[in-house]
Deep mutational scan, measured.
Amino acid sequence: MADQLTEEQIAEFKEAFSLFDKDGDGTITTKELGTVMRSLGQNPTEAELQDMINEVDADGNGTIDFPEFLTMMARKMKDTDSEEEIREAFRVFDKDGNGYISAAELRHVMTNLGEKLTDEEVDEMIREADIDGDGQVNYEEFVQMMTAK
């Protein structure tokens, strides 16, 4: 299944994987998964984290390695993001709930994920998604960005 991913997608997933893999040992533990999910405003229980890991832990060693992570991402993409997942993601970014993602809100979430971005990089990300040019990202623009192939 992971063989249907483009090189660009694999590179993006590698970057995402390293955000989860806090200690850089090449595997994601339940603790690391929990840290990232909490930084995104989720509050999973230990059991939920274990279930999430077990779902993709092909070799049964209790952690997720990069090939397992790729399989999980490929699977998720095949079920292409349901509207509800996209709306949920939008809410994570839209901290003040005004229906727009500002540069400050984007920077806040990315920083929580451990991504240190310059102001230019954040502005560039907003510009790429900002179709109507108002300097922020509304829900429609967010959907376009998330579903762009």
Rank of each mutant, 00 (worst) to 15 (best):
residue 35 T to S: 12
residue 57 D to L: 02
residue 8 E to W: 10
residue 148 A to W: 14
residue 125 M to L: 13
residue 129 A to N: 02
residue 38 R to T: 13
residue 133 G to I: 00
residue 102 S to N: 14
residue 1 M to D: 09
residue 57 D to S: 04
residue 103 A to M: 15
residue 126 I to A: 05
residue 96 D to P: 06
residue 101 I to L: 12
residue 20 F to Y: 15
residue 75 R to A: 11
residue 73 M to A: 13
residue 123 D to F: 11
residue 146 M to R: 01
residue 117 L to A: 09
residue 41 G to T: 07
residue 100 Y to E: 15
residue 124 E to Q: 01
residue 114 G to C: 03
residue 38 R to G: 12
residue 10 I to Y: 02
residue 121 E to P: 03
residue 42 Q to F: 10
residue 142 F to T: 07
residue 74 A to Q: 04
residue 113 L to M: 01
residue 139 Y to K: 04
residue 110 M to V: 11
residue 147 T to S: 12
residue 128 E to T: 05
residue 30 T to L: 07
residue 21 D to V: 13
residue 121 E to V: 09
residue 61 N to E: 05
residue 148 A to F: 15
residue 15 E to P: 02
residue 109 V to G: 05
residue 26 G to N: 02
residue 78 K to L: 01
residue 17 F to K: 15
residue 35 T to L: 04
residue 36 V to I: 12
residue 72 M to F: 14
residue 137 V to Q: 04
residue 103 A to E: 00
residue 40 L to N: 15
residue 127 R to M: 10
residue 5 L to V: 09
residue 42 Q to G: 07
residue 83 E to W: 11
residue 27 T to G: 12
residue 22 K to E: 13
residue 3 D to T: 02
residue 140 E to N: 10
residue 63 T to G: 11
residue 10 I to L: 12
residue 1 M to W: 08
residue 38 R to H: 02
residue 34 G to Q: 03
residue 131 I to H: 14
residue 93 F to D: 14
residue 131 I to V: 12
residue 89 A to G: 00
residue 121 E to F: 04
residue 104 A to R: 10
residue 6 T to F: 05
residue 94 D to T: 03
residue 2 A to Q: 08
residue 77 M to I: 12
residue 47 A to M: 15
residue 61 N to S: 13
residue 32 E to M: 03
residue 28 I to P: 00
residue 95 K to I: 04
residue 131 I to K: 05
residue 42 Q to A: 01
residue 112 N to Y: 10
residue 48 E to V: 10
residue 115 E to V: 10
residue 90 F to K: 04
residue 60 G to Q: 06
residue 48 E to G: 14
residue 139 Y to E: 01
residue 2 A to W: 02
residue 119 D to R: 10
residue 129 A to T: 08
residue 137 V to Y: 03
residue 99 G to I: 00
residue 26 G to D: 11
residue 91 R to K: 04
residue 39 S to A: 10
residue 142 F to A: 04
residue 65 D to S: 14
residue 47 A to W: 10
residue 113 L to F: 12
residue 41 G to F: 15
residue 149 K to V: 04
residue 96 D to G: 12
residue 31 K to L: 09
residue 80 T to W: 04
residue 58 A to P: 15
residue 107 R to M: 15
residue 140 E to W: 07
residue 93 F to W: 09
residue 118 T to D: 13
residue 134 D to F: 03
residue 120 E to H: 14
residue 96 D to A: 00
residue 11 A to L: 08
residue 23 D to Y: 11
residue 135 G to Y: 06
residue 141 E to T: 15
residue 6 T to K: 02
residue 107 R to I: 01
residue 149 K to G: 07
residue 30 T to P: 09
residue 48 E to Q: 04
residue 25 D to L: 04
residue 41 G to Q: 01
residue 9 Q to F: 15
residue 142 F to S: 00
residue 27 T to M: 10
residue 51 D to G: 11
residue 100 Y to F: 09
residue 109 V to R: 10
residue 85 E to Q: 04
residue 74 A to S: 11
residue 136 Q to C: 01
residue 143 V to C: 08
residue 79 D to R: 11
residue 2 A to V: 13
residue 42 Q to N: 04
residue 68 E to H: 04
residue 63 T to W: 04
residue 77 M to G: 10
residue 28 I to W: 04
residue 109 V to W: 09
residue 63 T to D: 03
residue 124 E to G: 12
residue 130 D to V: 12
residue 4 Q to F: 06
residue 54 N to T: 04
residue 116 K to V: 09
residue 86 I to N: 09
residue 125 M to P: 01
residue 102 S to E: 06
residue 40 L to T: 03
residue 99 G to N: 08
residue 109 V to A: 12
residue 144 Q to T: 06
residue 114 G to F: 03
residue 89 A to F: 15
residue 3 D to F: 00
residue 140 E to D: 09
residue 98 N to V: 03
residue 18 S to Y: 10
residue 147 T to L: 11
residue 110 M to N: 02
residue 23 D to Q: 05
residue 60 G to H: 15
residue 47 A to R: 12
residue 109 V to C: 09
residue 67 P to S: 11
residue 13 F to I: 13
residue 118 T to W: 02
residue 100 Y to N: 13
residue 126 I to K: 00
residue 113 L to S: 08
residue 64 I to C: 13
residue 133 G to H: 06
residue 34 G to H: 05
residue 24 G to C: 10
residue 102 S to G: 11
residue 146 M to H: 07
residue 1 M to N: 08
residue 85 E to M: 15
residue 3 D to V: 06
residue 2 A to D: 14
residue 20 F to S: 11
residue 110 M to S: 03
residue 55 E to S: 14
residue 73 M to N: 15
residue 54 N to P: 08
residue 83 E to G: 12
residue 69 F to S: 07
residue 138 N to C: 15
residue 113 L to P: 04
residue 99 G to D: 13
residue 22 K to Q: 12
residue 109 V to T: 10
residue 97 G to Q: 01
residue 112 N to P: 09
residue 36 V to L: 03
residue 69 F to D: 06
residue 110 M to L: 12
residue 6 T to Q: 08
residue 2 A to S: 11
residue 113 L to W: 01
residue 137 V to L: 03
residue 146 M to D: 07
residue 12 E to L: 02
residue 139 Y to V: 01
residue 140 E to I: 11
residue 50 Q to V: 03
residue 111 T to D: 01
residue 28 I to Y: 11
residue 98 N to D: 11
residue 132 D to I: 00
residue 67 P to F: 12
residue 100 Y to C: 11
residue 138 N to R: 02
residue 49 L to V: 14
residue 5 L to I: 03
residue 3 D to K: 13
residue 149 K to S: 07
residue 9 Q to H: 11
residue 28 I to N: 11
residue 86 I to L: 15
residue 101 I to Q: 02
residue 23 D to N: 14
residue 100 Y to G: 15
residue 139 Y to R: 02
residue 32 E to Y: 01
residue 131 I to F: 14
residue 138 N to E: 14
residue 79 D to H: 09
residue 40 L to R: 07
residue 92 V to Q: 07
residue 48 E to T: 00
residue 123 D to N: 13
residue 77 M to C: 08
residue 67 P to Q: 10
residue 51 D to W: 01
residue 134 D to S: 03
residue 30 T to R: 15
residue 115 E to T: 03
residue 31 K to P: 01
residue 53 I to S: 06
residue 119 D to V: 09
residue 67 P to I: 09
residue 3 D to P: 09
residue 12 E to C: 15
residue 70 L to A: 07
residue 38 R to C: 08
residue 24 G to Q: 06
residue 137 V to I: 12
residue 89 A to N: 01
residue 70 L to E: 00
residue 29 T to W: 02
residue 101 I to R: 00
residue 19 L to W: 14
residue 35 T to R: 09
